Computed example of a mutant assay.
Amino acid sequence: MDSIQYLPLDQIAAADLLPILNKSSTRKHLIEHDVFDLQRVRDWVVDKVEEDACDGCLVRATLLDETPVGWCGIQQSELGYEIAIVLDDGSWGIGKAIFKQLIFWCEAFQHETVYIHLLHTRPAYNFLHRLAERTFETQMLGDTFTTYELNVGKMTKQF
Rank of each mutant, 00 (worst) to 15 (best):
S3K: 15
S3N: 14
Q5Y: 05
L9D: 05
D10T: 09
A13L: 12
A13G: 05
D16H: 04
L17E: 04
L18I: 10
L18K: 11
L21F: 14
N22Q: 07
L30A: 09
I31S: 15
E32N: 10
D34K: 13
V35L: 12
D37A: 00
R40M: 06
R40W: 01
R40K: 15
V41P: 13
D43N: 15
W44Q: 06
K48P: 14
V49Q: 09
A53G: 11
D55K: 08
G56D: 00
C57P: 07
V59P: 08
R60I: 02
T62Q: 08
T62D: 06
T62I: 14
L63W: 03
L64C: 11
D65I: 06
P68M: 00
P68T: 07
C72T: 12
Q75H: 06
G80Q: 09
Y81L: 01
A84I: 10
A84Y: 02
A84S: 13
I85L: 04
D88G: 04
D89H: 09
G90F: 02
A97E: 06
F99A: 08
F99M: 11
K100L: 03
K100V: 15
Q101F: 00
F104H: 10
W105C: 08
W105N: 14
C106T: 14
C106I: 09
E107N: 10
A108H: 09
H111G: 00
E112L: 09
T113I: 14
V114D: 04
L118A: 12
H120C: 11
H120Q: 15
T121Y: 08
P123Q: 10
N126Q: 04
H129P: 05
A132K: 10
E133I: 14
M140C: 03
L141N: 15
G142K: 07
D143H: 13
T144M: 00
F145M: 08
T146P: 00
E149N: 07
L150Y: 09
N151F: 01
V152Q: 07
V152K: 12
K154S: 11
K157C: 01
Q158H: 10
